[in-house]
Nucleic acid binder design. Sequence first.
RNA 1: GGGCUCGUAGCUUAGGUUGGUUGGAGCACCCGGCUGAUAACCGGGAGGUCGAGAGUUCAAAUCUCUCCGAGCCCA
Length: 1043
Amino acid sequence: MIQSPPQKYIPKEIEEKIQKFWKENKIFKKSIEQRKGCKPYVFLEGPPTANGLPHPGHVLTRVMKDLVLRYQTMNGHYIERKAGWDTHGLPVEIEVEKQLGLEDKQAIERYGVTKFNEACKKSTLKYERAWVDMTRRIAFWLDMDDPYITFKNEYIESVWWSLKQAWKNKLLYKGHKVVPYCPRCGTVLSAHEVAQGYKIVEEPSIFVKFKLKNEDSYFLAWTTTPWTLISNVALAVHPDETYIKIRYKGQTLILAEARVAALLKGQEYELLDGFSGKELGKIEYDPLFTYAKPDKKAWYVVCADFVTMEDGTGIVHIAPAFGEDDYNIGREYDLPVVQLVKLDGTFPDEVTLWKGQFVKDADPSIIEHLEERGLLEGTRDYTHEYPFCWRCDSPLLYYAMESWFIAMSKVQDSLIKNNNQIYWYPEHLQQGRFGDFIREVKDWALSRDRYWGTPLPIWICDNKECNYTICVGSVQELGDLSESSPAEYDLHKPFVDELVIKCPKCKSKMTREKEVIDCWYDSGSSFFAQWHYPFENKEKFKENFPVDFITEALDQTRGWFYSLLAISTFLFDKNPYKTVLTLGLVLDKDNQKMSKSKKNYVDPTIILDHEGADALRWYLISANAPWMSTRFYEEAVKDTLGRFILTFWNSYNFFTTYASLDKFDPEKDMIPVSKRGFLDKWVLSRFNRLIGEIHTFIETFEIHKAARAIERFIIDDFSNWYLRRSRKRLWVEERTEDKLSGYSSMYDIFLGLSKLLAPFIPFITEETYQNLRTDKMPESIHLCDYLTPDEKAIDDMLEKGMGQIRELVEVGRALRSKIGIKIRYPLSDATIVCSKEIENSIKDLLGLLKEELNVKTISFARDTSQFMTKSVKPIYSHLGPKYKEKAKGIIDALELLDKQEIYEELTKNNEVKITVDNETIKLTDEDFEIVENEKEHVARADAEDATLFLNTILTPELEAEGFVREIIRRIQSMRKELDLDVEDRISAEINVGSEKKTALQKWEDYIKGETRSKTVSFVEKPAGKLVKKWKIDELDAEIGISK
RNA sequence: GGGCUCGUAGCUUAGGUUGGUUGGAGCACCCGGCUGAUAACCGGGAGGUCGAGAGUUCAAAUCUCUCCGAGCCCA
């Protein structure tokens, strides 16, 4: 039996109740299990990094994941939803460093790596709990009892296996990576740390001459870091730019044509020759310094696209050890990496002139030295941004560090091919941000000189002669190599480094490369490592690869979306996911990024407490397209709650209140649709059309459009029209077929809406469903099938007709407002002038119009003539010039005549004769314009395809009836004031003066019925529990009521 | 500095591919109505340099370019 729900919607109470119900009845588990054997829809959870509390952006991601998965589940797919946690990496280490008060890596080593990593693990578990709570709270159904966790031995073993595949395919190699480095702290800084420390500085920049080998000409290069000249190995030009050879101040210089004008402004020089950058390639020059003894060919010109014509000379000095561009071009040309700077930032002994000096401090001396040798063409102060250490304020050096790489550049074609197999939402990312990234793919710098991470499984023989290198791909392999393999193991530092491993070649001791790997590699391995593939679950992996769907925020494009594709490409040469939905970021009220320091950060739990998870979900889903950024603030969610959630709840409340009063039983009392009225058929038609739209929208991830369409249906069609128009039939006391038809349709719609909305707002829909369901239905809404539209229920003609009616109501009400006759006062009749076709489409729905406009009868006409009169209006601007001084008399005479008669005479005789000062004047149709007016007591309103005429005569009878409604309305408001129940009966005493009394008495029964009064009496001095004086227009009235 | 995305009423937004009547809603505001209809409903009103400028065109919110602002990514 349908129960009347609690009147007030308190989200927290309802949501807690529903959570309990789900938990006790294991609904989540059942929702998955009941689809076993169905077509799978494979989802892969992007593991959140467990190093901070979840913020609104994370909530959006999780809501979107949940919505899609619930939708697909209800549509009959089997979906496993394994949770995952990303637990390694620098963010976790930094968090723990803060907690333990450790300032740098030395401090960590002193503290002990075992203890430190233990603390990291503990920290991730603490945050995992916060994430689990949030995930539950917003009802993201995810299997968090059996998650994949990146720090688990099994996970690491799978990652090792994948690295071994890379190793076997010669994709894993050791090289250099140029990184920002603080020589004082002795540490590499992350990009994030560097970004904090940029300052604007003014430094000398210098123009340096490099003498061509065997020719008395010089390349003119420009640099802001003279200290790197010691390690110079090449000069770079742009292949497509033009370079010129000039004679200037008695010397021969080569530089870019595009730079000459800016550099030698107003100075004389002689143009000797010109070349393209390409032609300069390979030309050799004499080294500036000879401290370096390179092991490869050096000191020649190379071509590089990064050379710009904005600064300098168009010739760039290259020192691969101290610049990323330099390093990359060095790899391309196989240049030596000359690194004549020690890790403490000073020059080594072989740089005899400046040994032991800090490189930046040596700059002036180097400049002086070049000047003396005649190799300096000039200096110029240069203002630019330069990074400093955020900790100690020392200038950072870019420095080539040894690092392990995965040669992604070797599989670039596969990356591009595999990316083209993916469906991207929004589409532009595929060839845009993501495609660009792949087209310029760099080798993946994999190693990190840190502690808490997957150890790099590479061991090198200590015997330099042997130098044998092994990449370990499994625990088994590691055990076989080590002398003592304990039963208990932990594939982290320092455990793996403490194993004694002997070189299979020369039996010397082997040492592991000390680094751990980039944690993006961990999470990017999840598609196989979550199954501990290939050591276990080979079949399972096969079934779940590639995955059907992933979704994360935009910042993951070059993060997780890339690392998945990268790893999948070199392991399996396949795209790892078929569809990726990229979500926009969540910003604050003013479109600013949320950050704790700005204090513009909204704690989702506050909103969950106040407005509830459903309102929060609905806001995030409906506010904007998934890929657009969304502003997030409590007011917005509150607005959603009021506009949508409460409208839904209140209309549900209305239905159940009456349905329970009437003991409506859906198993016995349902009226077949065919027997229901037009209003019912209309709302079911609208609803079925809606269902179809929802499928289309969700499948193309236009989820906001789906939400908005449902919202419009509920607010406009269902609540504000269907329910409003249905109220009257529910008030009758008997169980009429009409009333039961209404209940039947409302029942259908609420049950349907519960299903339709279940993936969007899972709590409130469960609440409504539990009240509506019969024993034959599944025990939870989330075990139901999603709806498919019933095409037979969609009736275009009916919807069109209802559209017409609603438009006529609209213009009719506006008209009533204009003519100043309140809706309360009935009018005797209205006429609709329209085509036969429209008449047919609306003739069954006229009852609605009658009630809305409060008219007694409505009829149809084909044209407007019977309501309009034609008459004329003299054209004064025409009469004036034509009749000059007589015009005044003519106008006066016309004023006295009936314009309608003039029109009739004019149409009959083509002229009108009038007499002015005894003179007869003939006026023709040229002198008049024809105007149309409504006849007396007729009001007109135009709709798009129909015109409405109202008879505005208020007869005494109509007036009295209106007056009765004035009285009834006041009694009703007094009932409300006394807070009476709908069924309560009252007695009413009324004084309206003798004149109105007579009119009212005829309506006594009507008043009784409408106001649920046992007695209505007309007395001089009304008494009762509540007595009020009213002014109705000009009339004084007094009413008293008692229960 | 480069790339991508975005910018429409006080707020949230539709429309933009395919240029074409007066740029459409909702919230808030003002006036009126209706009400056993809820944090409501109905009618009307006010509110817009469609971020700015230029161009293409008979015609630009829509196409192109430049600039400004926001966000993300990269340097």
